[in-house]
Simulated scan of single mutants.
Amino acid sequence: MTDSEKVRSPRAKAGGKRRLLTAAAARVLHEQGVERTTIADIARAAGVPAGNVYYYFKTKDELVEAALAEHAGHLRELTDELDRLPDPRDRLKGLVGAWVSRRDTAARYGCPTGTLAAELDKRDDGGLDLAAGQVVRLLLDWVAGQYRELGDADPEGRALTLVGAYQGMSLLSNALRDPQIMAREGARLIRELDGGPGMT
C-alpha cells in the first residue's frame, strides 16, 4: 500500500459507510414509510452502529433526502441504460418492462418514489415533498423526451399519461396485494406503444 492509498483509506471507508446508509435508507423508508422508520432501523439495515449515523446524517430528514437522491440515481442508471437503445419506442417499452420486473416489490410496498412523495406531502415542512417531486419530474422529462423523438404532438401529455399509468398500477397492485395487476397493465402499455389504440 502506498502512502497516498493509506491517506485515502479512511475517506474511502467513510464514503463506503455513507453509501451503505444511503442505500439502507432508501430500502427501509420504502418498506416502512418515513414516520415508522427510526434512525436505528436504518443503521441496523446498513450494519452500522446507530451512533455512527450522526457522523454522516444529523437528522432523519437528511436520511430521507439521501434516500430520494438514491432513487434519482437508480432512475438515472436505468434511463442511461435504456438510452443505449437506438429506438425511443424500445426505450419506453424497456421502461415499462423494468416497472413490471419489480411487480412483487410494488405489490408489497408500492412505488418507491410515489409512496414517499405521498407521505411527505402530508408533512408541513414544505421541502422534502418538493424533493420527491423532483425525482418524479426527472422521469416525466425523460419519458417526454422519448415521445418528442417519436414526433408525438403532445410529448408532455403522453409522459403524464404513461407515468400516471405506472403510478396507478403500482398503487392498485399494492392496495390489492396483486403483482399481476402490474403484469397485465404493463402488457397493455406495451401493446399501446407497439401501435395499439392511442399511439400516434
Rank of each mutant, 00 (worst) to 15 (best):
Q167D: 06
R191F: 01
A26H: 06
L68W: 04
E149M: 14
A106Y: 14
K58C: 08
R91C: 12
D104W: 09
P88M: 12
G186Q: 06
A118N: 08
G51K: 05
A144S: 00
D61F: 07
K60E: 03
G168W: 01
A43H: 00
R76K: 05
A24V: 01
E156C: 02
Y147W: 14
A159K: 15
T38F: 01
R158I: 13
Y109H: 15
R84H: 01
G195T: 05
E35D: 15
A25K: 06
S101Q: 05
Q167A: 14
T115V: 05
R123M: 10
W99Y: 12
R177A: 15
K60H: 01
C111F: 12
D3C: 08
A43S: 00
E185V: 08
S101G: 03
A159Y: 15
T113Q: 11
R137D: 14
D152G: 06
A45Q: 13
D124V: 15
A67Y: 06
L68H: 03
Y56H: 14
Q167P: 05
P88D: 10
A153T: 04
E81P: 00
G15F: 09
L138Y: 07
K93L: 10
P10M: 03
V163S: 00
D129H: 13
R158N: 08
K60L: 03
F57P: 02
M169C: 11
A14T: 05
G94F: 04
R148I: 07
D121Y: 04
R19F: 00
K6I: 15
P155T: 12
L150H: 05
L116I: 13
Y54N: 13
D87Y: 08
P10E: 08
A12K: 11
A43V: 02
Y109P: 11
P112Q: 07
L150C: 05
W99M: 15
V100G: 11
L68K: 05
T59Y: 04
Y166E: 15
R191D: 09
V64D: 07
A183G: 09
L95Y: 04
P49Q: 01
T38Y: 01
I42K: 03
A72R: 03
E5G: 07
A106L: 07
D87G: 04
I42A: 02
K6Y: 09
W142A: 02
H71K: 03
A12F: 06
G126R: 03
Q32H: 07
R27N: 06
A131E: 09
A107F: 04
R102W: 13
A118V: 12
V34N: 10
A98Q: 10
Q134F: 13
A12E: 12
A25D: 04
G16W: 00
L63G: 10
A12C: 08
R44H: 04
L160H: 14
S170E: 09
A45H: 04
E70N: 06
D87R: 02
A69V: 08
F57C: 00
